[in-house]
Amino acid sequence: MNKMFLLLCAGVIGMAIAAPSVPCGVPTVQPITNRIVGGQVARPGSWPWVVLLVDDLGYISGSGVMIDSHVILTSAQHFEGFGYNLFDLDLRLWRVYAGEYNISTTDPHEKYYHIKRVVIHPGYNITSLENDIALVITTQPIQLNDHTRPGCLPDPSTQAPVGSVCYLPGWGGTATTGNEEVMNQVDLPIVDDSICQTHFPDYLPNTELCAGYENQHKDWCWDDLGSPLMFKANNGAWVIQGLASSGGNCTTADEPSVFEDISMYTQWIRTTMEDAGYPYQY
């Protein structure tokens, strides 16, 4: 779906800075973790780090994941591709919706924020989609609460091994299998790199993750671009393992998909956040 987003009556942007005691990756509403055919509607507040990105024309661009009260991690494709680049966009008119659930209504916990700056990975390649990652810096701090809180960056001890089941939440199309107005989620297992190399000859195993199914009718859709692939670590916190980058086709849903492997970018993310004045806290 790529429909006009009309949430023009959202509340005034919150100015409160979150207390340091707010943990990353720990929702107050537990996500649904049973696996069914296709995706399913997510519980409100169960993925509180997922934000909705709306472009300067009022259309849904995709999703991102909050890692700080000022910093969103997402796909570089939102801002640069064939025929458009970061300098063409009027970022002043873009909106980041946190606490979002139902895009057809103004949710009780929903607030929108404006973008101050976008930092695209210097190695991003619009053809190969190598290093398809960007950081969005918001003008004002995102107000944290039970429905809006950060996700955790991974480290070597929290990498999801092959066979691990991850979850991708977002507002992408459901190919008529669900309610497209609310956040949905789909379970996607990590699979061996060789599977994606078979389906996608330009797959980059050093910086990308392969997750999903062959002929299982489960996949993400284009409006899920930049959505996080979440893995529950042994300590119970949800960790951002990947970002939806390419291969998402919920119409056929007969192939796995390609995600940026966030564990390979943690140093760049931390350094960039530090340089922007918002060091990673967790």
Rank of each mutant, 00 (worst) to 15 (best):
A18T: 07
A18C: 14
A18P: 00
A18L: 01
A18K: 08
A19I: 02
A19K: 11
A19L: 11
A19Y: 01
A19S: 15
P20I: 02
P20C: 01
P20V: 02
P20H: 08
P20M: 02
S21M: 04
S21P: 00
V22H: 02
V22C: 03
V22T: 15
V22E: 06
V22A: 02
P23D: 06
P23C: 05
P23W: 07
P23R: 13
C24L: 04
C24T: 05
C24S: 06
G25V: 10
G25Y: 04
G25A: 09
G25Q: 05
V26T: 14
V26P: 01
V26R: 14
V26K: 14
P27K: 08
P27E: 09
T28F: 02
T28S: 14
T28C: 01
T28R: 13
T28D: 12
V29P: 01
V29E: 07
V29M: 05
V29N: 05
V29T: 15
V29Y: 04
V29R: 11
V29F: 07
V29D: 02
Q30I: 03
Q30T: 13
Q30S: 14
P31W: 07
P31N: 06
P31I: 03
I32H: 05
I32E: 11
I32F: 02
I32N: 13
T33G: 00
T33K: 11
T33A: 02
T33W: 01
T33F: 04
T33D: 11
N34M: 02
N34L: 06
N34V: 09
N34I: 11
R35E: 13
R35I: 15
R35C: 00
R35S: 02
R35K: 15
R35A: 02
I36H: 11
I36A: 10
I36F: 09
I36E: 11
I36Q: 15
I36Y: 06
I36D: 01
V37C: 01
V37R: 13
V37F: 04
V37Q: 14
G38L: 11
G38F: 07
G38S: 10
G38C: 06
G38E: 06
G38N: 13
G39N: 10
G39Q: 05
G39W: 08
G39I: 05
G39D: 09
G39F: 10
G39R: 07
Q40R: 15
Q40C: 00
Q40K: 15
Q40E: 12
Q40M: 11
Q40F: 12
Q40N: 02
V41W: 00
V41K: 15
V41T: 15
V41F: 01
V41L: 12
V41D: 13
V41C: 01
A42S: 15
A42G: 08
A42M: 08
A42F: 08
A42E: 05
R43Q: 12
R43W: 01
R43I: 10
P44E: 14
P44H: 06
P44M: 11
P44L: 08
G45Q: 08
G45A: 09
G45V: 09
G45P: 04
G45H: 11
S46A: 15
S46I: 03
S46P: 03
W47N: 04
W47P: 11
W47K: 03
W47E: 05
W47V: 10
W47M: 07
W47S: 10
W47L: 08
P48W: 05
P48K: 08
P48N: 05
P48A: 04
